[in-house]
Design a protein around this nucleic acid. Structure first.
Length: 109
DNA sequence: TTAATGACCTATC
DNA sequence: CGATAGGCCATTA
């Protein structure tokens, strides 16, 4: 079934380790820049936890949704921290350093 | 089919 | 600076 979900999952799955992407970015890479809400909905459905790194998807602030599927925002912090992602004092990811450029590993320009 | 919902984003008060 | 409103789209009931 090729719904928007599949497309979004495909993009989220391509996020390299130690990097994070925003909803809007995933939406854009998925094909439509207005799927930000759909991305959130898709991740909320979270049909394949472990396969889809939902914790690597954050909002434009570098912060995750108030209701994380795996157990809470604290869980997300550990998951990202385990991948080498650091956080600010506010608990938001340093997008300036860890925001996914949209390219896969080894495709640096 | 219609209506309602949502882990967003942007603009405005 | 903090809170509120609206707009966009797909999925579910």
């Amino acid at each position: 079934m090729q719904s928007a979900f599949e497309r979004i999952y495909a993009v989220v799955r391509q996020i390299p380790c130690g990097k994070v992407a925003t909803y809007g970015m995933v939406a854009q890479l998925a094909g439509n820049p207005r799927w930000a809400r759909v991305v959130g909905y898709a991740l909320h459905a979270n049909p394949a936890p472990g396969v889809i790194p939902c914790h690597r998807v954050v909002n434009r602030e570098g912060r995750l949704a108030p209701a994380f599927a795996f157990g809470g925002e604290d869980r997300q912090r550990e998951l990202l921290a385990a991948e080498g992602v650091q956080f600010g004092a506010d608990g938001c990811v340093l997008l300036s350093e860890y925001l996914w450029n949209g390219l896969k590993e080894g495709e640096t320009p």
